[in-house]
Amino acid sequence: MSAAAPALADAGARPDGAAPGAPAGGGPRRAVRPRRDTVESTVGSRVLVTGVLVLTSVYFLLPLWWLLVAATKDAGHTFAGSPLWFSHFDLFGNIADLFAYKGGIFALWLGNAGLYSIVGAGVGTLVAAATGYAVAKYEFPGRRTLFAVVLGAVLVPKVLFTLPLFLMFSQVGIVNTYLAVLLPSIVSPFGVYLARIFAASSVPDEVIEAARLDGANEGRIFFRVSLRMMSPALVTIFLFQFVEIWNNFLLPSQVLIDEQLKPVTVGLVSWNALVQSGQIERHMVLVGAFVAVVPLIVAFLSLQRFWRSGLATGAVK
């Protein structure tokens, strides 16, 4: 696993992996380069390339389009009419049914998912920011070891430890509580990794020294000065962690028993398992799946700039 470290660690060395939204000039921006678009392209290649790209986006978007269309059809007609066009429109009736089913459990599941994601990602971002900041800006014993372990953990999926974690949690007796989902969700090695890069590139040492000379203590400097300078980056870290927790399935399905505590992914799958035995309408699962996707798609579209710069900085530079 050591060989991945250089690929990842290179990231820190490149100052132009600046935080999203950071003012240009945070690093030696590459000299003005010739725009690729000025390179001549023939009409033929343009048509070919665009044609292929259109086909691939059909592959990516058509299933989602189908989901949208199917979710608007009324319960008895899920598969009626064209699979790709509206008929028997009853989206609002479907959504009302979904939220009324079994005393509104679906709304509770959405709320739980929101709670796990917002609290987990919020606390997790703060913890990651503090750690990344310390690794970037302080010299302390074990600094290198800590960062090496973080890099290693980025490469070792949490999921592999979900089962042992469950066994351990049942020994400690926190299975089937909010904590059982929140505690593991808070820890994000990738967040620490990103935070280190962002702290190194967006918080100048001079600012910290100046604050020290003004008599501010280290904690105050972190909360009042550094955290603010890192804030665009923190949004990126928050966003990634939010999505990861929202999407998580194995951990919550393992450590939660109560229906009341489940997040929406686990709830939906438990419904889906009841379809075969006829205990729930297939249509209900479909509408639920559609509703569960909407918040994330909206978040992604409106916060594009953050995830793009995060991926670019985190994985490549």
Partner: peptide
């Protein structure tokens, strides 16, 4: 998408990335 011949780069980038916003469980259901 990176090539000089591509038009509408932003749209194509977004289109292929959209499935990532869908929880794996939900995409499997779909």
């Amino acid at each position: 998408i990176d090539s000089a011949s591509a038009r509408g780069k932003g749209f194509f980038r977004l289109a292929s990335f959209a499935p990532y916003a869908v929880p794996t469980v939900v995409s499997a259901l779909m």
